[in-house]
C-alpha cells in the first residue's frame, strides 16, 4: 500500500463550468489529490466530484455510460484534443498513468455550433442522431428470420462495412474539426450501408438526405484537414469521406 501511495499524483485541473445552455461559462481550477496512475480519467473526475459534493459545491457534470470505450458517451476535450489524444482511446479508457505528478489538465466540452452546451462538459449531440434519422437505415419488411447466407456479402465488403460501423457516434470528429463538420460521422454511416447489398437500394437517397441533414443541423463543410481521423477513438478513416463523395457524385446524376 505504501508503494502504491507513493505513486499518487497531484494534478491541477482547469475545467469548463457552465450552469446552463445560455449561462456564461468559464474555466475553473481544481486540485485533484492522491490520483492513482491506475485510475481512469473519469474515475479521477469522480473523486474530484466527491470532494466537491462533500464541500457542498456543485459537482462537475460530464457525460459517461459504459466506461469501456464502446458507448460513445464520453465527450471531453482534454488538453486540446477530444478524448485526450491517446490513439484510438476514449476518455473513459484513458488512464492517469499517461499524466505526470504536477501536470495541469484543461478539460473542455465538445465545441461546435451543432453541439449546444447543456451543462459544464455535457453537450447536446442530438444533431448527430438527426443525421442518422435522415437516412442511416435500410427500409425492409421484417418477418421471419431469413435463411443464413440468403444474401451473399463478399468478405472484403463485409470488412469494409464493419470498419465503418466501428463509429460509436461520440462526436469527437466534430469537436476536433476546425470547421465543426460532421463529415466523418456521416460518411461512416453512408459508406457502411452503401457497400452492403441491403443498403445499396437506397444509397442515392440516403447520401443526399444525410448530407442535407448535416447541413441543416449547423455542421460546417469538410475541408480535408483530417483532424477527425486523428482524434477518432475508433480510428475511422477519412477514406469513408472519399466514399461519401463518390456516392454523392453518383446520386447527382440520378
Amino acid at each position: 500500500m505504501s508503494a502504491h501511495t507513493s505513486n499518487t499524483m497531484t494534478i491541477t485541473l482547469h475545467v469548463w463550468r457552465q450552469a446552463g445552455p445560455n449561462a456564461p461559462g468559464k474555466l475553473e481550477q481544481y486540485e485533484a489529490k492522491n490520483v492513482s496512475p491506475d485510475q481512469s480519467f473519469l474515475e479521477m473526475l469522480d473523486e474530484v466530484n466527491e470532494d466537491l459534493i462533500k464541500a457542498g459545491k456543485d459537482p462537475i457534470a460530464f457525460d459517461h455510460d459504459c466506461r469501456e470505450g464502446i458507448c460513445g458517451m464520453c465527450s471531453s476535450v482534454i488538453n486540446g484534443v477530444p478524448h485526450g489524444g491517446q490513439v484510438r482511446t476514449t476518455a473513459c479508457q484513458l488512464h492517469m498513468r499517461t499524466f505526470k505528478d504536477g501536470d495541469a489538465i484543461y478539460i473542455e466540452p465538445w465545441r461546435a455550433k451543432a453541439f449546444p452546451i447543456i451543462k459544464d462538459l455535457i453537450v447536446d449531440r442530438n444533431a448527430l442522431e438527426r443525421i442518422t434519422q435522415a437516412g442511416g437505415y435500410t427500409s425492409c419488411h421484417t418477418g421471419g428470420v431469413p435463411d443464413g447466407n440468403a444474401i451473399l456479402v463478399p468478405k472484403p465488403d463485409a470488412d469494409y462495412a464493419m470498419d465503418a460501423a466501428e463509429c460509436i457516434g461520440c462526436g469527437a470528429c466534430v469537436a476536433a474539426c476546425p470547421n465543426g463538420s460532421a463529415m466523418l460521422y456521416t460518411s461512416a454511416k453512408v459508406a457502411q450501408l452503401a457497400v452492403l447489398p441491403q443498403g445499396k437500394a437506397e444509397a442515392a437517397e440516403r447520401v443526399c438526405a444525410m448530407v442535407d441533414a448535416m447541413q441543416e443541423n449547423g455542421f460546417g463543410n469538410c475541408s480535408n484537414h483530417y483532424e477527425c481521423q486523428a482524434a477518432c477513438p475508433k480510428g475511422i478513416s477519412v477514406k469513408f469521406i472519399a466514399k461519401l463523395n463518390r456516392e454523392y457524385q453518383k446520386a447527382l446524376f440520378k
Binding site: 482547469h14 469548463w16 474555466l27 476535450v77 488538453n79 486540446g80 484534443v81 489524444g85 484543461y106 473542455e108 465545441r111 461546435a112 455550433k113 451543432a114 476536433a176 474539426c177 476546425p178 470547421n179 465543426g180 463538420s181 449547423g218 455542421f219 460546417g220 463543410n221 475541408s223 484537414h225 483530417y226 483532424e227 481521423q229 486523428a230 482524434a231
Partner: peptide, 21 residues
Amino acid sequence: LTLENKAANPTNYAVKRQLKA
C-alpha cells in the same frame, strides 16, 4: 464555405492541439 465553417465553429478552445491540420 469559409464563412460557413467559421459560423459552424464559433467558440475557440482555451487549449487546442492540432493533430493533423
